[in-house]
Nucleic acid binder design. Sequence first.
RNA 1: GGGCGGUUGGCUCAGCUGGUAGAGCGCUUCCUUCACACGGAAGAGGUCACAGGUUCGAGUCCUGUACCGCCCACCA
Length: 1040
Amino acid sequence: MTPSNDQRPTTNDQPMAKAYEPRTTEDRVYRFWETRGYFKGRIPEPGSAVAARDPFCIIMPPPNVTGELHVGHALTDTVEDILIRWHRMLGDPTLWVPGVDHAGIATQNVVEKQLAKEGISRHDLGRDEFEKRVWQWVGRYRPIISNQHRRLGASADWSSEVFTLDDTPQRAVRTTFKKMFDDGLIYRGERLINWCPRCRTALSDLEVEHDEQQGNLWYIRYPVVDGAHADGSPRLTGEHITVATTRPETYVGDVAVAVNPRDERYTSWVGRTVMLPVIQREIPVLADEAIEMEFGTGAVKVTPGHDPTDFEIGQRHGLRIVNVMNDDATLNDEAGPYAGMDRYEARMTMLRDLEELHYLEKTEPHTMQIGTCSRCHTVVEPLMSWQWFVNMGPLAKPGIAVVREGRIKFVPERFERIYLNWMENIRDWCVSRQLWWGHRIPVWYSTDEDGDKIIVTLPAEWAPDHVAQAPGNVAKAPSNMAQASSPAERTPGDSQPGTAVPHEGSPAGTAVPHERSPAGRTVPHSGAGPHPPAVATYNELRASGVSHETILRYGTWSGVGATPIVSIETPERSPAGGGHLLQETDVLDTWFSSGLWPFSTLGWPEQTAELKYWYPTSVMETGYDIIFLWVSRMIMLGLYNLGEIPYSTVYLHGTVRNEHGQRMSKSLGTGIDPLEVIEKYGADALRYTLITSSGPGNDMKLSEQRVEMGRNFANKLWNVTRFVISMIGDTKVAPFDIDALVSANRQPPTTSLPVEDRWILSRVEGLARSVDEQMRKFELGEAARQVYEFVWSEFADWYIEIAKVRVRGATAEGTREAVAAEDSPLPVLAYVLERSLRLLHPFMPFVTEELWQALTSKLDGIDQDALIVAAYPRGESGYADAAAEREMELLIDVVRAIRNIRAEKKVEPGKFIEAYVAADGARGVLEAGALYIEMLSRARPLHIVGDISQAPKDQVATAVLEGVTAVVPLAGLFDTAAERARLGKLIADAEAEAGRIDAKLRNEQFRAKAPAKVVAAEEERLAAVRARLDGLRAGLAELG
RNA sequence: GGGCGGUUGGCUCAGCUGGUAGAGCGCUUCCUUCACACGGAAGAGGUCACAGGUUCGAGUCCUGUACCGCCCACCA
């Protein structure tokens, strides 16, 4: 390695290995690119040539810091890197911004799992300490992740890397929140939300998965009540109404029974009163359209506090809401004797009780969709809770318009409808999360003004004794500390048990205060554990001696009824002066910051030069599974904040599955580690495989076998180049100059170049045009396949084989001379190979750069320093030589025909055999290619005759092609019967084909309606098949 | 309950605007000759899920059916 060269990926004085070794190449090549600064997204100088070109910018979907990258990320990187490298080579100003996502709930969960291994919970650490632990996690995984991108070859601008919790995104989040709040798009409200009892946080609708589960439909009798006995006890009529439910444990929250108003079975029941068994609550029977008469008994228990449909029924009929559950899915005191039980334990206990009292009529098996937490797969509970929401309607409107108007295009197109359908039915977005990791909501409450409205939950150990015990469910989630002392989660299928703290004493029987919520409804509270937390107003706690610092450090609070102070900057003191400020303890849904990603990465809310130049970005490439979660929100928030679309194209890839079609999952061990694949096969092999394994929007199965194909191709390329370099030897070669050729002579120079040169040049220019077309259509896999096909099946299999003959001739065998030096194939060989490397570079960057460096060190007139910045071929020379392509095909067919005969007759591979070929009107072509036919099919002497009748007729095998007949005398090897059989089969095939074409041509309709071009082609084809048939029949006749 | 995607040789998949069915792997036969056995040569193998329809012509367009998968949806 020479000192001046140490930045080069390849040194010229080392002999190339026999096989490509990705491991000794990739890191070195990547370092070469990176240190040379090729990845840097540069804003062009005004007035410069590049300034006229459209910038091309991709913001990378930031992977979660939860762990290492999986193959799905590898696909993302591959697609995006291909687009980026392609545009870079096209000469466009190019920027690819990498980033990492803090991934709130996901990361919090993995760190909590880690803590669990140490036997502690996040509550043992407290919020600050816990956040430190998460930051440690981030510090560990961020470098791993960026290293993995590098291993994949991602040519991202690392100087622009962003983390979602960096200052700028933080500012973007706060700015957006404030703007939305001021615009009335963000509000705080008490709604029925999805609650994960294990994660102990609210979830948006999109974070709930609907799994089909086998459950039961239980039929429960509610006795009819008519007035009361003298002692006040309800007077039962002996009748009952039966309701069917899948969730009997919520019956304690029932406030009515509903039937369909048109249901004649129940007409007389409406308005009567029934009683809930055991807990003896009296509730009305009412009529509501939402009830399906066919389902169950047609009578439904109405539980507005725990079911969205029932909530709406409740709203329509002014029913109160009874919340019967704690935040850990144990029942609260509304459940009477069942209080304190886990929801499933309560279910079973209730069913036993009901059965005993003959209130359980029957049980039927029933399959149903059940909502589970997308993070931990615990069954979610619909719970009433105070949360922050975004009113999406006004945001969706422009988001719909830009797609309708075609300003944003989806690839594949079909996802547009899916997007639009969701956007048109959009619902408000619950954005607050009861987590510790994330963007904390930029809302503060003033203890001065609202000290009586700020409800603080303090863990028992910090609670003063005389403060009221344990009201749990204040408004939103109760204290996080309270959760630490709750029973371990027992949900089936939940692999991660909750934080297990010994359960002392019974929570049942705790006095339960009720609090009036601002909405005017009574919200029940519950005691959730043995050491109930204190729940009190800020002022009460302070009055009982708890310091502000203690509240700040250990408390959780919410300002129901308080005036929120929404601010971008953290306010120093309350506006009224003097008092303290308490910031909302909730954080925002991770996807809130993700939605700002296309511009927060570019500096927004500052009007940076980067933002001005690169925004709107070009392509958003991501998985179709996050169209709603992410894509839609970026579009809406981009339009909202900047008044401009975030990108003009959304390219969606599918899900990568393993070879058995399973989703990749770390916990199931069904994942494929991209680094392992890279270690074994190389990054280029993985990339090639990923991009060719399926089209846009379609899922794919990735198998090792398939990666082998990519590896083999890289190796093929390696050896092709190795061979070309060895042929070039010590004297530099100037690659063929196609531009000079074409500009000097618009017509293909049919005479000055040998047919194989004109053929391969025509093919490679055509390939470049085709690849360009495919790339523009985002058919990246098809583009890659085409280059593969060209390099292997045309360039390597034929052009190189012919070039060998041209250079070496057949002198060893003593009959012909090698071609003269001025007819050397080297310029064309070098040109075509160099073009091929360029075409392939976006797909297989490492091996192509390595080879390009090695090759161009042997070439004159290459003006770029590196392939990564070399111009991408687009076939702009326009060179095309149809005649050469036809002629070359003919030569190839002749070689194949003779080889076929040799193989069938089991002629020794190396042995030369005599052959006769005749072509009507193409004799010149055969003569020009005679040496190649001879050498490639080992046919010698090769007789080119005017008419095949001049060939011997005895003991010969005949091959008839379009316009060419070959006859191979096979004395000694000949088997008449075998030859007859061989010809017989060929004749039968040809006859069938001729029959088909003939029938088509006899069809008057076809002649009348098909385009003349198609008819002519069919006629030509028929003539050719018939000629072939004649030749074959003649051959057969000769056999006697 | 809606919607979408898939169903092409043994396996995994291409086949983009309708005009002679392709690839890789696997399989058969042969070849370790001076780029490559991560290779070369020759070959076998497909009623393009099924049923209709449009068309001169359909794997490709339309309708329906069947399986498989996914998404959305408040039938308790």
